[in-house]
Simulated assay, not measured.
Amino acid sequence: MPGGGFAKLPGGSVIVALSLPRPQGEEYGPGPRVRVLVHAANRQRALTRLRNLGLRAVYLRGNTEPPTPDEITAVLHHPDGLVWRATLDDDTESWHPIAALLRSAEHV
C-alpha cells in the first residue's frame, strides 16, 4: 500500500506527499516507487491535480508518511508546486518537475 500524508500550511493550503509505483519505462534511479509532492489549496485539489495528469488511481488514506520540512521547502520553491524524486532514502537526489516523470512513462 502506498504511503502518504499531508501537512497543512499556516495560510490554509496543504502539501500532499505520496509514494507511488514508478511508471513503466522510468529511467531515473533505482527502486519501484517514486515520492510525489503536490502543493494545492486542499487535499482533494492536490489529488485532482495528479489525476488530471493521468495518475488515475491516486488516493490518500491516512497520514502515515507526511511531508518532511525539506520536502515542503522543495515543493514550495518549485513554480508548478508539483515535484517528484525517485530515490526515497537519498536526500542528495534533486527533485524533478512532474513533466519529466510523465515524459519518461510515454516512451514505453
Rank of each mutant, 00 (worst) to 15 (best):
V108L: 05
P23K: 10
R22S: 10
L37N: 08
L20E: 04
P69C: 14
L47R: 01
T68N: 08
A46Q: 00
A99T: 08
R35C: 14
G4M: 01
P97N: 03
P10L: 11
L88A: 04
P97R: 00
A41R: 02
L53P: 06
W84H: 07
L60F: 12
H39T: 01
H78L: 06
T87R: 03
Y59I: 04
V36T: 02
P32F: 03
A17M: 07
G81A: 10
V16H: 13
R33V: 10
E93N: 06
G81M: 12
R103N: 06
V16F: 15
S94K: 03
T48D: 12
E27S: 09
Y59G: 01
G4P: 00
S13E: 12
T87A: 09
A40H: 07
R56M: 11
I98R: 01
R33M: 10
G29L: 06
A99Y: 05
T73D: 15
V16T: 11
P21T: 02
A99F: 05
P69R: 13
G29W: 07
N42Q: 02
P10E: 13
A100G: 01
T92Y: 12
I72M: 10
E93H: 05
T48M: 09
Y59K: 00
S19A: 14
P10A: 11
G11I: 14
N63P: 00
G31N: 05
G29D: 08
E93F: 04
P32D: 06
Y28V: 12
I15Y: 08
P97A: 03
T92I: 07
T64E: 08
V58F: 11
T73I: 13
E71R: 08
S94M: 05
Y28F: 12
N42D: 12
P69G: 14
G4D: 02
G25E: 12
N42T: 00
V58N: 07
R22H: 04
V58T: 13
L76I: 15
V36G: 03
W95V: 02
L102E: 08
T68K: 11
G11Q: 15
Q24W: 15
H96R: 11
T64A: 06
R85N: 13
R22K: 10
L55N: 02
P21Y: 07
F6T: 05
R51E: 13
H107W: 01
V58C: 13
H96M: 09
G4F: 02
Q24T: 14
N52D: 07
S13W: 03
N52P: 00
L9F: 08
R51L: 09
W84I: 04
D89R: 01
A57C: 06
R51H: 12
V108M: 03
A46Y: 01
G4N: 01
L18W: 11
A40N: 07
G11E: 15
L88K: 02
V36S: 04
